[in-house]
């Protein structure tokens, strides 16, 4: 506790014998703190630069619209089946996890509040956000793929939905908590029942925040590989069905091609990485945009 023993008064810092050392330590600490930020920025810049430079040379209209070559050693080809697969699998996951997650959050914040059951659910959904995605993949493999003897986009969606559900619950509840109680009370005072209050007052007020949280969850799910490894199978041509036949995904293609000794396959991995990064950053940017518009709107209306 150097604070307590340090001589009082800022002016003493310059005159006391130990002052030089203290000043030097302060500068050293500040320098280390700045270095920490720079150290974290290096990999970000390196990864994005790498993906753009390597992926950029293969990326283009053909890459986005052609099928994946059947043979790994073939040069050229595209990633259309993987792009379609990623969108279908992630969309299917969102269609399951978002409504259920928002309903769960409504239970926690509007009904359960501080009851024991609600606290248990809240706690375990937080713990569940830390369960590794590969475990979700194994789980769906055991209960779905083994049981029905087929790998489909839907199985991948189920695994991703397990991953998204706790995230959507947690972020949605945080947003619902921010809805002022006066709004609910105003609605009750006008004679609305609780369902109606939630539907016409609480949810509209919370919608931008929930949408932003959901977009971040979708972005994270779209980049996941591990839950798809044993659930979606493998194809080289486009499969637009959610429930029939195997499919593929961008993340899966990157993993599959990354260790390939063939230049063509490696190039497709780089191109797929660029496509996936663009997709994920698009969702992240959309989430930020929604948040920005939302905060500007509320600050404007409360300032009026």
């Amino acid at each position: 506790m150097s604070v307590v023993t340090a001589p009082a008064g800022g002016a003493l810092l310059r005159s006391r014998p130990g002052a030089k050392g203290r000043k030097a330590r302060n500068h050293a600490a500040t320098a280390l703190i700045v270095v920490a930020v720079l150290v974290a920025l290096i990999p970000l810049v390196a990864v994005i630069g790498f993906v753009i430079s390597r992926g950029g040379s293969v990326f283009g209209w053909q890459f986005l619209t052609q099928d994946i070559p059947v043979l790994d050693r073939d040069i050229g080809g595209g990633m259309l089946p993987a792009i379609v697969g990623t969108l279908i699998i992630t969309g299917g996951a969102a269609a399951m996890a978002v409504p259920l997650g928002v309903l769960g959050a409504i239970y926690l914040n509007e009904y359960g509040q501080r009851r024991r059951l609600a606290r248990v659910i809240r706690f375990l959904s937080e713990v569940m956000t830390g369960v590794p995605s590969i475990v979700m993949g194994l789980f769906i493999y055991v209960v779905w793929v083994l049981h029905f003897k087929n790998e489909t986009a839907f199985a991948g969606s189920l695994a991703l939905a397990c991953l998204m559900l706790p995230i959507v619950i947690r972020t949605s509840e945080e947003i619902l908590r921010l809805v002022p109680h006066e709004l609910r009370e105003g609605s009750y005072a006008l004679g609305s029942r609780k369902v109606r209050t939630i539907r016409t007052v609480v949810l509209p007020h919370a919608a931008p925040g929930i949408v932003s949280g959901v977009l971040l969850a979708v972005a994270r799910a779209a980049g996941e590989t591990a839950p798809l490894l044993f659930t979606i199978g493998f194809v080289t041509s486009t499969n637009t069905s959610l429930f029939h036949g195997p499919t593929t995904a961008l993340s899966y293609q990157i993993f599959h091609n990354a260790t390939s000794p063939f230049v063509g396959a490696q190039d497709r991995a780089y191109g797929a990485a660029l496509t996936l990064i663009l997709l994920v950053f698009l969702f992240t940017a959309l989430a930020r945009l929604v948040t920005t518009i939302y905060t500007r709107r509320t600050s404007a209306s409360s300032g009026a």
Binding site: A46, T225, A273
Partner: peptide, 10 residues
């Protein structure tokens, strides 16, 4: 936001 598999590839 960068997917795990992209870090691996890099």
């Amino acid at each position: 936001a960068v997917p795990s598999v992209v870090f691996g590839l890099w």
